[in-house]
Amino acid sequence: MLLNVHCTPSIQIFVLIFTTDPIEYAPLPAEECLLTARTAGCMVTGSEIICTFTARDGLNGIDDLTEATTADRISALLSSLTTSEKRAARVLLARYPTVGLESVTSFAAQAHVSAPTILRFIAKLGFDGYPAFRAALRHEVDEGRRGPLSIPRPEADTLIGRYATELSEIVSTTLAELNPSDLERVVECLADERRSIFVLGGAFTNSVATHLSFHLRKIRKKVFDLAQSPQQRADVLADISKKDVLVVFDIRRYQADAVVTSQIAAQRGATVVLFTDYWMSTASEFSDFVFRAKVDCSSPWDSLVGLTAIVETIALELDRTRWSLVRPRLEAIEQIRSRLGQCTSSDDVR
């Protein structure tokens, strides 16, 4: 199969893929085009680059788009889309995946583009047509609803070794896909002590939310855990304003109250930071920043190590950038703990 990938108006990459399976690859950013081509052993001839890849190779960070979500495809292709196609992409990501499950006419109307633009957009994502695009989104919705009762149990004979590898890959994949710009901006928000920070975990993700709160309270003041009870949470949400930050954790088998909480905070002007999975909670529609972690593995229970890795990366960056302020706070906390008699010789109490 010969795939023509435009890199810049003057440069084209022709990729010859030896595979029986249909695979689409994303265009490279223009500034990386020639360098990446030469590094990969491609033949550069004037305005053309001839590359040969096997089915296991990939471009722009996606090794196999058959395993990628539609959101992954959009992220990989966003820089190469036309202005109208980018408008469609952003509307879809903001209301993911709901908008894509509607008719092409409805999608186009919400994105303020023409129906042919939507069809060109999904074709660039690698779908044969709008039905295939919607089928992929429906599959993602189904995956997002999977729970421990519907996931098969792994065989015991290779469990430990294979699972260790899976967990390592979850962490490395999740961190590799972090947007450095978003990470920097979220760290700035969380470091701003003029803001109050409210953290909400779900039934399954509350342990990770608590882990973030622990680090934040060591680093700064005005950090609050939102109650799991929606009724008790309402008392706090009534006071949230544009100077505040809401951090929400919501992964598959998503919680409606987490989505509504995000919506309320956004409507009141707060900055909303969402931690979710690859299928994305619909709370993303109301979020200013979205961090996606890989959660699926051979265990019937989704893994939280990807989310934890993002939390610890943020904590590390906050500590690094604010150490001159963090240190005296930690010293004061340790002195108070000592006076309260809450330190133990084994240092177990934290």
Results as ranks from 00 to 15, higher is better:
Leu3Glu: 13
Asn4Glu: 08
His6Ala: 13
Cys7Ser: 09
Ile11Pro: 00
Leu16Ile: 02
Ile17Ser: 11
Pro22Asn: 12
Glu24Pro: 09
Leu28Ile: 09
Ala37Trp: 03
Met43Thr: 13
Val44Ile: 12
Gly46Tyr: 02
Glu48Ser: 06
Thr52Val: 14
Ala55Gln: 15
Gly58Lys: 09
Gly58Ser: 15
Gly61Trp: 08
Asp63Gln: 13
Asp64Asn: 15
Glu67Leu: 12
Ala68Glu: 04
Ala68His: 04
Thr69His: 04
Asp72Trp: 08
Arg73Val: 13
Ser75Thr: 11
Leu77Cys: 13
Leu78Cys: 08
Ser80Asn: 11
Leu81Arg: 08
Thr82Asp: 11
Val91Asp: 06
Val91Leu: 11
Leu92Val: 11
Arg95Gly: 09
Pro97Trp: 05
Val99Thr: 10
Gly100Lys: 04
Leu101Gln: 05
Ser103Glu: 05
Thr105Ser: 08
Ser106Tyr: 00
Ala108Gly: 01
Ala109His: 01
Gln110Ser: 00
Ala111Gln: 02
Val113Lys: 03
Ala115Gly: 00
Thr117Ser: 07
Ala123Ile: 03
Ala123Phe: 10
Lys124Met: 14
Phe127Gln: 08
Phe127Gly: 10
Tyr130Thr: 08
Ala132Arg: 13
Phe133Lys: 05
Arg134Met: 08
Ala135Gln: 14
Ala136Val: 07
Val141Glu: 04
Val141Ser: 01
Glu143Trp: 01
Glu143Ser: 02
Arg145Lys: 04
Glu155Ser: 14
Ala156Asp: 14
Gly161Asn: 15
Arg162Ser: 14
Ala164Trp: 07
Leu167Pro: 01
Ile170Asp: 00
Thr173Asp: 05
Leu175Arg: 01
Glu177Phe: 05
Pro180Cys: 02
Ser181Ala: 05
Leu183Pro: 03
Leu183Ser: 04
Leu183Phe: 04
Arg185Leu: 02
Val186Leu: 06
Val186Glu: 07
Leu190Thr: 04
Arg195Val: 04
Ser196Gly: 14
Phe198Gln: 03
Ser207Tyr: 03
Ser207Ala: 12
Val208Ser: 06
Ala209Thr: 03
Thr210Glu: 07
Lys218Tyr: 00
Ile219Gln: 01
Lys221His: 00
Asp225Met: 15
Ser229Pro: 03
Pro230Glu: 11
Gln231Trp: 11
Arg233His: 07
Arg233Ala: 15
Ala238Phe: 08
Ala238His: 11
Asp239Gly: 08
Val248Phe: 08
Asp250Ile: 09
Arg253Ala: 05
Tyr254Cys: 02
Gln255Ile: 01
Val260Leu: 15
Val260Trp: 10
Thr261Ser: 15
Gln263Ser: 15
Gln267Ser: 15
Gly269Val: 10
Gly269Cys: 13
Gly269Asp: 12
Leu274Pro: 06
Phe275Asp: 09
Thr276Ser: 12
Ser281Val: 10
Glu285Asp: 14
Asp288Phe: 11
Cys297Ile: 00
Ser299Asn: 12
Ser299Gln: 06
Pro300Asn: 10
Trp301Asn: 08
Thr308Tyr: 02
Val311Ser: 05
Glu312Tyr: 06
Thr313Tyr: 03
Asp319Cys: 02
Asp319Met: 06
Pro328Asn: 00
Arg329His: 00
Glu331Lys: 03
Glu331Pro: 00
Ile333Cys: 00
Glu334Thr: 01
Glu334Val: 00
Ile336Gln: 10
Arg337Pro: 01
Ser338Tyr: 06
Ser338Gly: 13
Gly341Ala: 10
Cys343Leu: 15
